[in-house]
């Protein structure tokens, strides 16, 4: 299930924006476009494979140092250029293999680069910009924390080529001392372990699952449907709080994330209790 192909990002970026090129000064791996979506001038961002990337460990669809800072720059532009009352939406199209695993990356503090991108996305959301993530392929680990996980709303395709996870299967199996088969078996009963996007949906973190018959080759009608869903998600985000509380309020979250909700309830009660004293 779900080899990383590295083509879906470009396919969907092109489908939704009609373009697929980086902005001046950006690495070839970061695509940015401003296009009209519904009534908005929306900024689309995507990280794609760039075999010629300057950093050798970021040539296969990973989010590396340059990708993270380019994303941060392009998201911050939207916040800083803001003039009118209507906050421009930002859409992150996600198909990332992972963060970049390299010595240069660690030396030059990829943890800070990743934080800078997440800072930009989160700050945009807090400033009232609808930030919508569309997961069209892989959304793994630090790559997803950097690009996509700070969004108000997360949409994903209900497709075997879509995978949201903390770590790819082989590494997770090795570290937890399990076989890949055993890990897959556990995933069928323990939703957070599963690599299947339909199980991920049970965690209550997704706004919606979308269906596209062939995500590598979508029809015009499917592209229009996705566009309409993005417009609806933007509208929904505009009429909701700018924090991430919706991720605990969905029907699925109330079931699967019961422990999170109970922890919050207990802490809130004890915190307040103390203030009385």
């Amino acid at each position: 299930m779900s080899e990383y192909l590295g083509i879906r990002g470009t396919v969907w970026f092109r489908a939704l924006t009609g373009q697929a090129s980086p902005m001046r000064g950006d690495p070839g791996s970061v695509l940015t476009a401003d296009v009209s979506l519904g009534e908005d001038n929306t900024r689309f961002l995507c990280v794609v494979r760039d075999p010629h990337a300057r950093f050798p460990c970021a040539r296969d669809g990973q989010v590396g140092l340059e990708e993270a800072y380019a994303l941060a720059t392009r998201v911050r532009e939207v916040i800083e250029q803001e003039t009118g009352a209507v906050k421009r939406p930002i859409i992150a199209i996600v198909d990332v293999k992972s963060q970049a695993y390299g010595r240069r990356e660690e030396t030059a503090a990829i943890f800070l680069a990743a934080a800078a991108a997440a800072d930009a996305y989160g700050s945009a959301r807090l400033a009232g910009h609808p930030v919508i993530t569309l997961v069209v392929g892989h959304a793994l680990s630090g790559g997803f924390l950097t690009h996509g996980y700070q969004a108000n709303r997360i949409l994903a395709f209900d497709d075997d080529g879509v995978m949201i996870h903390a770590m790819h299967k082989e590494a997770a199996a090795r570290i937890t001392r399990r076989s890949v088969e055993n890990l897959e078996k556990l995933g069928r009963t323990i939703a957070p372990l599963s690599y299947d996007i339909r199980d991920y949906a049970k965690l209550g973190l997704l706004h919606k699952l979308l269906h596209v018959d062939s995500p590598e080759n979508p029809s015009q009608q499917e592209i229009q449907n996705v566009r309409d869903e993005l417009i609806a998600a933007i509208d929904d985000a505009r009429h909701s709080p700018v924090d991430l509380r919706n991720r605990l309020q969905s029907k699925e979250a109330r079931e699967t994330r019961k422990a999170s909700i109970l922890t919050r309830t207990i802490l809130e009660a004890q915190w307040a209790e103390e203030q009385v004293h």
Binding site: A118, F144, M167, A172, L244
Partner: peptide
């Protein structure tokens, strides 16, 4: 992320960051 809680750990970190 605690790998035995995988996606809920990753989601928790995203929320901590927020």
């Amino acid at each position: 992320v605690r790998l035995q809680e995988a996606n809920l750990g990753l989601a928790a970190i995203a929320e901590i960051m927020a």
